[in-house]
Design a protein around this nucleic acid. Sequence first.
DNA 1: CATTATCTGTACTGTACAGTATAGTATAAA
DNA 2: TTTATACTATACTGTACAGTACAGATAATG
Lengths: 208, 208
Amino acid sequence: MEDKKSMVKKSAVAKRQKILEGAMKVFTENGFDASSMDHIAQTAGVSKITVYKYFQSKENLFQEIVSDFLLQSDEKKPITYSKTRPIRDQLMDFAMAELYRVKDPIPRGVSKLLASVYLFKPDLVKQTLAGKHFYEDFTIWLEAAKQDGALTFETAALTAQIFYGMMEGCLTWNILLTDGATLPYVEPILAEILDVFLCRYGTQKVKA
Amino acid sequence: MEDKKSMVKKSAVAKRQKILEGAMKVFTENGFDASSMDHIAQTAGVSKITVYKYFQSKENLFQEIVSDFLLQSDEKKPITYSKTRPIRDQLMDFAMAELYRVKDPIPRGVSKLLASVYLFKPDLVKQTLAGKHFYEDFTIWLEAAKQDGALTFETAALTAQIFYGMMEGCLTWNILLTDGATLPYVEPILAEILDVFLCRYGTQKVKA
DNA sequence: CATTATCTGTACTGTACAGTATAGTATAAA
DNA sequence: TTTATACTATACTGTACAGTACAGATAATG
């Protein structure tokens, strides 16, 4: 209506995509409960009845957004262990991949949305999130590094928890809760995290 | 009505308390948006109009609950540095104080509630949370430990962030998001956190 | 032009909620 | 007994929302 040019010929998948994008915007800005289907339809530039033609319900639309997003995240190539690159640089790769989730407004919004829904409506996301092994790549990488003698630890799972725990506890959650306002303070903390991790699990002395 | 015995003489503060408790229960079980004033009044065993006699609005009631809870939390005595107790034991005290927030269902519910509201309605809690310095006691303790030669670090603020980051990232958030289901797995992770921390900041060698 | 399918705005149903009005009840004090 | 206070149940107002009905518009195709 307000956009004649782009209406030359919208295929069904394009219209579906348009709805998903509008819904993503509204959901990530307001959370699940405070998002209305009217607002979503308006933001998508689509009639509310059309939204219901593509998605059965608000819950369904929400779940489609989440699984679409997770599908895209899965397309990121895994980081494989290298014997030649410095360990610290490779750790930094994992750290940057984690930070990607919160640097950009869009993935950050989805992360906020997921967290808030998970807190009081876990059933809405549990199914969609089932079978996701977030630390899997890192665990594999850890084992390779241990094999190579670059790291030392008892169990890879525990070590992975420490690394991602520091990342999430020091950075991810702060950035999510402040909606990105603490992003400028990332660097010194990130450096300290790597120091601490390598001090405990590295085989070369790094302690100042 | 259904409880004659306890109605011998309820003072105003007792009735206020009754409402606060009912509201706490409803809010912590359902989150802010999904909690209705009708449900709160019913849970408190009180007429809805009485709720509005004590609290101006739903937002106001929510904020009173939060500030009441934070007031109680402030009453916890600070942990002061001891030259004789092992450093690891003292660190464990801070860790247990942090875990208190998520072990018991009631403080855990409040923590969940605060987190979910903070994500998409920060204005509701920002004022109430302003001026809270959560790591203050620990920072003071850190400086004392450094003075005593028991710990070594550059800046206490960064070191405190690492400690609480590990605690929150590895434990607090997992426990909140699973509503306590991961509590049985705390011990080995907690031990590892202390190991890692002392490995980097301790002055006695603890690395295996 | 006629047909078909899809989309649109508008308006509706039924529900739920925040907050209020009212009329009445229980209690305590005088 | 009277009076004042605090509460209660019930019902209401106005709003917002999920989801649907409908009648008309638009576009592609024949």
